[in-house]
Each structure stands twice: as structure tokens, then as C-alpha cells.
């Protein structure tokens, strides 16, 4: 739903476009990005105010994936669910980053069934990186640091740091090679009822469905084909149609249909 240029792409684009300006800050690209909003790993961005952005690679069609998939990440991340903000991945970025978020097809009730393992591992891995960053800051062994509800606690002394405070440092930690997942008996988010997070937008008519996408200079096509199966196109009055308001082109599609391309869908379909 959100195809807007995201911050990472914006930074890449603006770094190229305004190279001299960016260099003026003497910040290498990675540092600038991390300062903007640290990406602990591809799935998780933790902002300085502790908002945990969890990326969702499947579409939300009312089945609840936009809520259920972030729950998997948040469970292992030991994040405070109230601070989790699901966000759809940007398809352009997905391609640019060599399909870092894996399969995006949303079909056959598979989003939830097939995403558990890698999403939970992403959450667990980020949690270990946050723990490592806090341990480094306190100069204590990682085993003395506990992560719970978006807060890191040094158990022996009771010192605490919120996730947002160490996210930047955590994003530079090496990702652990293997992480243990919690047994389901320890789950506090998964297996509990949660309100679907996209509903408030849906009751305001805000979601952008495919039919709502508008791009600069976009044209619309309407197709007329034979009402009978296998019917062939005999003729059409291209000149008459081309004169109608908004119409830009009339195109025969092989020998079976005609497409009218116009400035708006209504103008195309009327023609």
C-alpha cells in the first residue's frame, strides 16, 4: 500500500543528487542512514523514540497478515507490542536489495504458515544484537543483560536502556550465526488476541488499493472483447472513438479485442 519513497531510498537518492551537500556533513553513507533510523536488520528499524518498525512482505487482504507477521518478529524481539508499527516493504527497494525480504506472493493462506521461522529468527537475532550493544555500552557480559518489553536491563545493577537508545549501536553488531527460538510456552504476544492494526485506516477510506494508484501522466485503458467465447474482432470505428473526450489511442489486441486508452478510466470505458 505504501509506495512512497522511503527514508533509505530518499537518502540514497539525495546523496547522489546533492553529493556536495551531503559531504558537507562528513558522514559516510551508513552513518547517515543509521542516524536517521537504525535498521537493526532488514525486518526491523528501531527509532530513537523506541518505535519499532517491522516490515511486512505480504499483502493485507483482510486475513490479518499485517498484524500477525509483526507479532512473530515482536515475540522474539521481546518488543513492547504497543510500540510496534508494521510497515509494508517498498517493492522497488526489495528489487534493489536483491529480494532481501524473500517471497512476497500472498496466496493460499501461506503468509502466516510459512513465515514463522524466518521472521522469528529475525526478531531473535535483533534481540541478541541489542543485548550485545547494551553489554558493550555498560562493559558487562551479555549474559547479564535481559531484554524485555523494549527495555534492556543489566540484571545485577538494575540499570536500564530502552531499545531506541542502543538501536544505532546494535545495527553495527555482527548478526549472530544461529539463534534459539523461544518455546511456545513462553510466548506473550503470539497466541494472544490482538486488534488488527490496519483497521483504523480502513474506516477512513485511506488504504490505496491497486485501482487507487495514481502515477504522473498515467493513462487508463478499457478493453472491449467479444461477449461470446472465441469471438473474433471484425471491425471497429477508430476515428469515431479517437474523437471522444480524453481518448488518446485505440488499439486492436490481436484479433479478439479492442483497448481504448484515455486520460481517465471513465473516459476509456465510455468510449
Amino acid at each position: 500500500m505504501n509506495f512512497a519513497l522511503n527514508r533509505r531510498l530518499f537518502l540514497q537518492a539525495s546523496t547522489v543528487a546533492g553529493g556536495g551537500f551531503m559531504l558537507g556533513f562528513a558522514l559516510p553513507g551508513n552513518e547517515a542512514e543509521a542516524a536517521a533510523a537504525p535498521e537493526v536488520n532488514a525486518w526491523i528499524v528501531i527509532q530513537p523514540d523506541d518505535t519499532v518498525i517491522v516490515r511486512v512482505a505480504h499483502s493485507e487482504m483482510g486475513q490479518g497478515a499485517f498484524t500477525a507477521l509483526p507479532m512473530m518478529v515482536a515475540e522474539e524481539l521481546n518488543a513492547d507490542w504497543a510500540k510496534v508499527k508494521p510497515e509494508f516493504i517498498n517493492p522497488t527497494e526489495h528489487v534493489q536489495r536483491n529480494r532481501v525480504w524473500g517471497g512476497t506472493a500472498t496466496v493460499g493462506s501461506r503468509a502466516v504458515r510459512t513465515s514463522h521461522e524466518y521472521l522469528r529468527k529475525a526478531g531473535a537475532s535483533a534481540r541478541e544484537m541489542l543485548i550485545a550493544a547494551a553489554a558493550q555500552q555498560w562493559k558487562v557480559p551479555a549474559s547479564e543483560v535481559r531484554a524485555e518489553k523494549s527495555v534492556l536491563t543489566h540484571t545485577p545493577t538494575g540499570r536500564t536502556l530502552s531499545y531506541g537508545k542502543v538501536a544505532s549501536a546494535a545495527s553495527r553488531m555482527p548478526a549472530p550465526k544461529d539463534v534459539a527460538l523461544k518455546p511456545h510456552t513462553e510466548w506473550t504476544i503470539l497466541g494472544t488476541p490482538k486488534s488488527r492494526v490496519e483497521i483504523p485506516d480502513k474506516v477512513m477510506g485511506k488504504p490505496v488499493f491497486a485501482i487507487d494508484v495514481r502515477l504522473p501522466d498515467m493513462l487508463f485503458a478499457a478493453i472491449e472483447h467479444s461477449p461470446a467465447f472465441g469471438g473474433k474482432l471484425k471491425s471497429f470505428d477508430e476515428k469515431a472513438v479517437a474523437k471522444m473526450p480524453g481518448v488518446r489511442a485505440v488499439v486492436a489486441l490481436a484479433d479478439s479485442a479492442v483497448a481504448v486508452v484515455a486520460d481517465s478510466y471513465f473516459e476509456a470505458s465510455r468510449a
Partner: peptide, 23 residues
Amino acid sequence: DGSHPVQAAWVAHEVPQCGYCQP
């Protein structure tokens, strides 16, 4: 701001699924 009673009830009852027809 989504505060119309119908919108509030729609949120409370989680009425929309895909949401296309809901407006």
C-alpha cells in the same frame, strides 16, 4: 479523524476485512 460513531463501531467490531467495500 475517524471519530464518527459508525467509524468507531467499525473499529470496535473489526468489521473490515479487505476493506474495499467498507467506505
